[in-house]
Amino acid sequence: MTASTNIAARRLGLPTSALRLHAGNRLSFAIVLLLGLVTVVALLARVIAPYDPIQSVGGLNLPPGSPDHLLGTDAIGRDLLSRTLWGIQVSWFASLLIVATGLVIGGVIGTLAGVFGGWLDNLLMRFTDLFLALPGTLVAIAIVAALGYSLQNTLIGIAVVWWPFYARIIRGEVRSIAARPHVEAARLAGISRPRIVLRHILPGVVPTAIVTASLDIGNVVLLLAGLSFLGLGQSAPAPELGADTARSLQQLLSQWWVPLTPGIAVLLLSLIANLGGDAIRTLMNSKR
């Protein structure tokens, strides 16, 4: 494991000592593994799920802990565990996708602006700031409302408002590293510009990008769940965490587990994502 993390670190251009485990870092490392575990569960949802999430498979509104239905069933007898696992799959990968899109678009724009500076920087950052200063969630809602309700459009809506944050951060990091003496020294040493960017600047941006992105996953999980709760997402029979809660609201005071189970799943995802982000930051900061 240590060998492979070292290889990963080298490929990222990080000092290997960044991932050397101190006693205090064991907990952080365990939490990062938890992130991996969630990903595996999401990946294997259809294998792990005991039942078809859309078919009625048991009694109506069975409470959690029922013999064949660990988390109970909903008003039409669908297995809540299966629906939740499928919902986790959608939620988790959609969130990762949005963060990845943000990182890629924002990363490219931020790097271009940061590396070239001048009018290009001005142009790109004006554009970015414009998006940053707009209320992202509301614009996303308006976009989905205009394009029509579907998971795909929700992802488009969020992606459109999500990248500027990354562009800002990465551009700032590129600028600050590009202004450091080691880059000037490299320039004076006669090293080519692409090589300076690839070898002397970008490896320094990677830790910030990773930490920012991992801390952001939880935000996206919550935002997606919120939009899905409002009805901006997959349509009716498909399992989706926010929407499942919204559709069973009237059962809150009679069968609370039906609306609350998907919500608790969102809480767990977001909690693990947040803890994972913090843990990754701790691990990255503990180098030296």
Binding site: P15, R180, H182, A185, A186, A189, R199, H200, P203
Partner: peptide, 22 residues
């Protein structure tokens, strides 16, 4: 040029050999 703070004028994630080889 030799800078005031040598620590910050050497790229922190590259080895001394790589810095000289470049």
């Amino acid at each position: 040029m030799v800078f005031q703070d040598a620590g910050s004028s050497l790229t922190p994630w590259l080895s001394i050999g790589e810095l000289l080889r470049e």
